[in-house]
Design a protein around this nucleic acid. Structure first.
Length: 370
DNA sequence: GATGCGTGGGC
DNA sequence: TGCCCAAGCAT
């Protein structure tokens, strides 16, 4: 396969020199200035927002951000909190390794940095959950550093304006975009405010005008220079991820009831829903029945309607079964068993980090009992 | 370098 | 509806 052109530099060469200045001016006038994590240089607040915003849209993050900050107002409070409390506050937001890394990072900042985040991108990128782009964002917004981000917004903007072909998930294309982003940064003598406005402008342009579906090129400050706009290739750039078949998995879940309480189990730290609390599971019907007997359920289980949950990389068919604790089984004997299971009143589910579809299942169950 | 890792929005 | 993907990182 021949090597496609990474970027058509010549038509846009002049733009290289004007890009940052024009973007900063646009950001000041038309960018976003009132998001909950803006108008502060508190590294804790900026860091928290950047972690939550990884692969997650702004509208989804906003309510989680407010609740999380209210519960953990500073890095010391977060570092001192039990991991279960952190997971409970993160539940529903997804990509739960972010929450575990967030907690570990807070502890490192407190124990190794005296509670103060390091100020350089390189030092930040050493911390758990902070990669190259997030490190640059934190350093830019909190410390006015000269380091570029490269998130989905920036990839889309640069791929379109400069006509970068190829799927950005491919290393060769991503490297080209990093190099392009670096080359476009404001000059070394730029002010902190300009550097922050540049970083924010990259994201604002991608999030508000240069959107995936139907970009608003008429309002774009780069419309006259944009390769995609000039050639009508907005829908083709950036190149889409290659399609792959999505496998389906199937699991049986046990809702073991005792009055208004259900039995939850802590999931292992790695893998899907790592570190969350969920229902006892089995790989097939008879295995679940066996588990139910072991846990002290009465003989027969009720069948609920199956539900499907779609992840990025597979589809999960859930077969829920409902059982009751046998009168002969004592809940105390189960409580004493270990630290990784708990009887939880349905009204208290929010105190536990529970996967979204399990939460929905239990909320529906609680509703049917009222 | 490829894969695993959530959930919800937009079309 | 089903498909694509979003302020990516870790292994």
């Amino acid at each position: 396969m021949s090597e496609p052109a990474i970027a058509s530099i010549s038509p846009t060469f002049a733009l290289q020199f004007a890009f940052a200045e024009r973007l900063i001016a646009w950001q000041r006038r038309h960018g976003r200035h009132d998001l909950p994590w803006q108008n502060t240089r508190d590294p804790y607040r900026i860091w928290l927002s950047e972690i939550m915003l990884q692969q997650t849209q702004v509208a989804t993050v906003i309510p989680y951000y407010a609740k999380f900050l209210a519960r953990f107002p500073d890095v010391a409070a977060l570092a001192a909190a039990p991991i279960d409390d952190v997971m409970a506050s993160w539940a529903g937001l997804g990509y739960y390794s972010r929450a575990r890394n967030l907690h570990r990072c807070a502890q490192v900042v407190v124990e190794q940095f005296g509670g103060a985040f390091p100020a350089t991108p390189d030092a930040l990128a050493q911390l758990p959950g902070i990669g190259r782009s997030t490190a640059a964002a934190i350093a830019s917004f909190a410390f006015g550093a000269r380091a570029t981000i490269l998130d989905g917004n920036v990839k889309r903007v640069l791929a379109r304006v400069f006509g970068v072909d190829g799927f950005p998930g491919e290393k060769r294309v991503e490297n080209a975009l990093w190099a392009l982003a670096e080359s476009l940064m404001p000059a070394a003598d730029a002010s902190d405010a300009d550097l922050s406005a540049y970083t924010q402008g990259l994201m604002d342009l991608g999030a508000t005008l240069c959107v995936r579906g139907k970009p608003d090129c008429a309002r774009c400050p780069f419309a006259e220079d944009c390769v995609a706009n000039a050639t009508g290739r907005q829908r083709e750039l950036p190149a889409a991820r290659p399609k792959k078949a999505v496998p389906t998995r199937r699991t049986w879940m046990l809702v073991l009831r005792d009055g208004g309480s259900v039995l939850l189990e802590r999931r292992p730290p790695a893998g899907i829903w790592g570190g969350l609390w969920s229902l006892p599971e089995a790989a097939d019907e008879s295995s679940l029945a066996e588990r139910a007997r072991t846990l002290g359920a009465t003989a027969s289980l009720d069948t609920l309607a199956p539900l499907t949950h779609t992840f990025t990389h597979f589809r999960l068919d859930i077969e829920p079964r409902v059982g009751r604790l046998d009168v002969a089984a004592t809940r105390a004997s189960l409580d004493a068993r270990d630290d990784d299971s708990a009887w939880v009143p349905l009204a208290d589910i929010e105190a536990y980090g529970v996967p979204a579809p399990v939460r929905k299942l239990l909320d529906a169950l609680q509703g049917s009992l009222l």
